[in-house]
């Protein structure tokens, strides 16, 4: 019993200490993107402005958490790793509009909401890693189900947002029947269970398990730069990156982005951080530390990424594709994409 009382006491003190609002300038980020990826950029922001940045990585449940916290929510900036998730935030009503000359100047109109509910911060392409032993220089998304890759393709879970975004774009272009056949073909091409992450694709190509893998562009940079160690460098050495296109279009591009929370207690700091994130300096960091495509036209792509060739984004906009996402996810279930074999 004594323990119990002491525990309650200790918890109470902790609670008061943690919950008391502080006077120092700060900004709180709820993010579905692993904060390690953007930490260098946040550190630079802190060094420049003195504003403290607090983060919590909520891989899932960001919306539920912000909604449940309601007006008491400490969240200022909501960041997502995927466009669909960004729009989900807006649809859930947990964001607020921001009007800023700086943001409007830096971010092209197609990569932000007209009302300022959301802003894209960086981009990446859904590309194909191909074995260097393979004589393959170009490929279309439509060819991913070709029989020449039977049992030779590696891909992560079909339900991962990176893949459902790709499938939704296909669905928007080709309709349900064709998409289903295509997904069945890709499933038949799987060399192993659709699991793990995008880097596993490169590793499995190096291991001879598959010939091609579907992955995001920046993972190649993270591996090839040696930032992940020699082992990963060896994986990237086994592959070359092809920018696939749709037969009648360009390459699939998805974005990471941010929105200011509806009840942001530090709204000004949140906008200041947003403006910093699209500044030349931060956009350079996105490209250099993270190997992403900058959204700002004035920032440069990293040489490792530029070596893939010129990126021709597909004409279909992200907003057009979005309504197809739920159906694409259902099709993944219908073809039993994530169960290997049968």
């Amino acid at each position: 019993m004594r323990n119990h009382i002491m525990t309650l006491g200790a918890a109470g003190i902790l609670a008061v200490a943690a919950a008391a609002p502080t006077l120092a300038q700060e900004v709180n980020i709820y993010t579905t993107r692993e904060p390690g990826l953007i930490q260098p950029i946040l550190d630079a922001f802190n060094a420049e402005t003195g504003i403290k940045v607090n983060t919590v990585f909520l891989e899932s449940g960001l919306i539920e958490r912000v909604k449940a916290e309601g007006e008491s929510s400490p969240a200022d900036l909501l960041m997502t790793v995927d466009f669909g998730a960004l729009i989900d935030l807006v649809n859930a009503g947990v964001t607020q509009p921001v009007q800023s000359e700086v943001l409007n100047a830096a971010v092209p109109a197609s990569l932000r909401d007209a009302d300022g509910q959301w802003f894209a911060l960086s981009g990446r392409a859904r590309v194909v890693y191909a074995s260097k032993e393979l004589d393959l220089d170009s490929i279309t998304y439509e060819q991913l189900d070709d029989e020449e890759f039977r049992g030779k393709l590696c891909i992560r879970s079909g339900q991962h947002p990176y893949n459902t975004a790709m499938f939704a774009a296909y669905l928007a272009k080709h309709g349900e029947e064709e998409t289903k056949t295509w997904l069945q073909g890709i499933k038949a091409n799987q060399a192993r269970a659709a699991a793990g992450g995008d880097r596993d694709g490169a590793r499995d190509i190096a291991a001879g398990l598959c010939d091609i893998a579907v992955a995001n562009s920046y993972y190649y940079g993270l591996m090839a730069s040696g930032a992940g160690g020699d082992e990963q460098k060896a994986w990237s050495d086994a592959v070359k990156v092809i920018l696939p296109t749709f037969e009648d279009g360009g390459t699939l591009v998805n974005v990471s982005g941010a929105a200011v929370a509806a009840h942001a207690p530090n709204r000004d700091e949140a906008v200041q951080l947003l403006e910093y994130l699209v500044s030349d300096e931060a956009q350079r960091l996105y490209a250099e530390a993270n190997f992403e495509y900058p959204v700002s036209a004035t920032a440069e792509v990293h040489p490792l990424i530029a070596a893939f060739g010129t990126l021709q984004p597909d004409g279909q906009s992200l907003t057009e594709v979005l309504p197809f996402r739920a159906r694409a996810s259902e099709l993944v279930d219908e073809v039993n994409f994530d169960t290997f074999g049968n």
């Binding site: 902790l14 609670a15 943690a18 919950a19 609002p21 958490r65 008491s72």
Partner: peptide
């Protein structure tokens, strides 16, 4: 009159 924080979620009490 001060902004209210999150007593349980903000302190880790929700984890406990």
């Amino acid at each position: 009159g001060l902004p209210g924080g999150l007593l349980l979620l903000g302190s880790g009490a929700a984890l406990v």
